Amino acid sequence: MFFEIILFSILAGSTVFIGGLTSYYFENRVDNKELKELTVHYLISFATGIMLSAISFVLVPEGIVELPILLSCFLFILGGVSFFFFDKLIKKNKYKIPQVIAMLLDFIPESIALGAVFVYSHKTGILLSIFIALQNLPESFNSYIELKRLKHSSSKALLILFVLSFVGLAFSLLGYAFLDDKIEITSSLMLFSAGGIMYIIFQDIAPLLQYKKRRMIALGVNLGFIIGMLGEAIL
């Protein structure tokens, strides 16, 4: 069990660096500016579908099993309200890296839940790790672009993303160590994360999908959600 948590946590976190490498490739090998913009928007759209499927198939269904419904609703709202205040702080931070911080706001609580949930639901742990991995990929793609806009060199931007790729492993092990027999706390964390992610989707991410009246970009949300449907069916 311990080594499985390590394996799937590394899998979930590895896409932070892979997304950065992919973005680096586009920066250096693709000259078509509009193609770059479209790729970014489709990736954002796909990530939105993945995030919605994580909420729909794992975080909320598994979270409400062990908790009273009124408490579940409160935690979901609390997550949204908390991320609202986090979002305000991000917008004011002097480093101006909202994409990177937003990625971590999703990644950290989900990773803690991943380490804890493996103990009592192997299927849920695998599914959550897949969701986290797919969610991190487009977010880190955009984070690399953001870091470059802040005048970081390519090597420094990739180094930052490489280091961040191991954040999930650290927090998953913390979740496993301290929450493995505390199902109620784990469920609370999942519902809190779900509420926060829902806020981020419709406050920060969905408005970015608009690009030169290309309505098909929004279909990426459907494709991302289908990944969740397939994962749920297979596992």
Score class of each variant (00 low, 15 high):
Leu169Cys: 01
Glu232Asp: 13
Ala12Tyr: 05
Pro68Asn: 05
Val30Thr: 09
Ser56Gly: 09
Thr39His: 05
Leu59Glu: 03
Lys213Val: 10
Ser121His: 04
Glu27Tyr: 14
Lys156Pro: 07
Ser53Glu: 00
Ile5Leu: 01
Val58Ile: 14
Gln99His: 11
Leu173Ala: 01
Leu191Gln: 02
Ser56Arg: 09
Ile10Glu: 05
Ile130Gln: 08
Val100Arg: 03
Arg215Ile: 13
Leu208Tyr: 09
Phe166Ser: 07
Val221Asn: 00
Ile130Met: 14
Gln203Asp: 15
Ala113Trp: 08
Tyr25Met: 14
Asn93Asp: 15
Ile201Ser: 00
Val119Ile: 15
Leu43Tyr: 06
Ser187Tyr: 02
Phe3His: 11
Gly231Val: 08
Ala157Asp: 02
Pro68Ser: 03
Ile227Asn: 12
Arg29Glu: 10
Phe17His: 07
Ile90Gln: 14
Glu4Val: 12
Leu169Met: 00
Ala47His: 11
Asn28Gln: 13
Lys96Thr: 11
Glu184His: 06
Asn142Ser: 15
Phe178Val: 06
Phe86Met: 05
Phe166His: 09
Ile77Ala: 10
Glu139Trp: 07
Phe8Gln: 09
Ser72Asn: 02
Glu146Ala: 03
Asp204Ser: 07
Phe57Leu: 01
Glu66His: 15
Ala54Ser: 13
Ser45Gln: 04
Leu208Cys: 07
